[in-house]
């Protein structure tokens, strides 16, 4: 049995690609499972999806806690989420990134096999809007299974009803681009060490929780949503700022920082999700979106407990 964990952000198609992957492996004669994790998070928040595949029927419904393969659709997640949790050194880490394998290895401290694919760039080259299918193509190559033709057939099955013929053709091209971008490999199922307490490790015991699930006010500020940005952040040219505060009133994330005298001083990049409403609101053109490297993105320092 092969177990895969996909890490993405809401809207990047982690769930879709897991379903595409399952459709392809079913075509290849495997038994498959594809399932996402549902939460209160909205587009941009870290999300997970999972696949299982095997030669015989899969009956288990337990969570995937020690995957053979981890796929990361957004490089910024490397700093925000423990992506290699439960991944055996014999397994595979596939990351959509412009960075090198050694750079990724240094950041995540994973000793096993790492494959990097510049998925965003390849997606744009193929005319696609999302890197998820590019990464699926790369994964098929890195695992040696399924064949690219089967993966493309999986895309037709999983997405044919949702996409226009043109968009489907783009998807297929994106798969091919990903397939061609990495060197061939093979998947060896790893020996799994099940972790019964997996994802709830380190959380409070029930006895220590407040009566009635009451929460002390104002604790969300410690949650860093800066990682939701997709490569662009607002930047201000202060000499053009007239302190009209329109960026402040229209910011959904309370990320416009004011001084005690309520003068605009800058953005809180730990909170800013990069919606660019401030750019639209600014009457003098003082604010513009600028590119930022995921690796250098503020707001991605590991969270304190």
């Amino acid at each position: 049995m092969i177990e895969i964990r996909w890490h993405g952000r809401g809207g990047q198609g982690a769930k879709t690609v897991s379903q595409l992957w399952a459709a392809a492996l079913l075509e290849a004669g495997k038994w498959v499972q594809a399932f996402p994790e549902y939460g209160p998070e909205r587009s941009g928040a870290p999300v997970q999806a999972y696949n299982r595949s095997d030669d015989s029927a899969i009956r288990r419904r337990a969570a995937v806690t020690s995957p053979d393969v981890v796929v990361v659709l957004d490089p910024s997640l490397l700093a925000e989420v423990d992506v290699t949790a439960g991944l055996d050194p014999g397994g595979l880490l596939l990351v959509n990134t412009e960075e090198s394998v050694s750079a990724v290895r240094e950041r995540v401290g994973f000793e096993g096999r790492i494959v990097c694919v510049p998925g965003d760039r390849l997606a744009i080259g193929a005319g696609a809007t999302k890197a998820n299918v590019v990464v699926a193509g790369a994964l098929a190559k890195a695992l040696g299974d399924p064949p690219v033709a089967t993966l493309k057939e999986g895309a037709r099955i999983a997405l044919g009803g949702k996409l226009s013929p043109a968009a489907l053709a783009t998807t297929v091209a994106a798969i091919e681009a990903g397939y061609g971008a990495v060197s061939a490999g093979r998947c060896v199922p790893v020996s799994r060490t099940p972790r019964a307490d997996g994802p709830t490790r380190g959380l409070k015991r029930y006895r220590d929780l407040a009566v009635g699930a009451v929460v002390a006010a104002g604790t969300a500020g410690r949650t860093r949503t800066g990682g939701w940005r997709t490569g662009q952040r607002p930047d201000v040219e202060l000499r053009r700022c007239i302190n009209c505060l329109l960026c402040w009133v229209y910011c959904p994330d309370s990320a416009v920082e004011l001084s005690d005298e309520v003068v605009f001083v800058g953005f809180d990049y730990d909170l800013c999700k990069g919606c660019a409403l401030c750019v639209e609101a600014c009457p003098t053109g003082a604010i513009a979106m600028v590119a930022e490297s995921p690796a250098l993105r503020p707001g991605l320092a590991p969270q304190g407990k």
Partner: peptide, 29 residues
């Protein structure tokens, strides 16, 4: 009651959203 909502000097959130990581503990509590 331990956390009266009307204590505006000590504001509290009542009735939050709990995911699988906490729901079980909260019910056991």
């Amino acid at each position: 009651v331990p956390y009266p909502l009307l204590d505006v000097g000590r504001p509290t959130t009542h009735g939050p959203f709990a995911m699988p990581d906490y729901y079980f503990e909260l019910k056991r509590r």
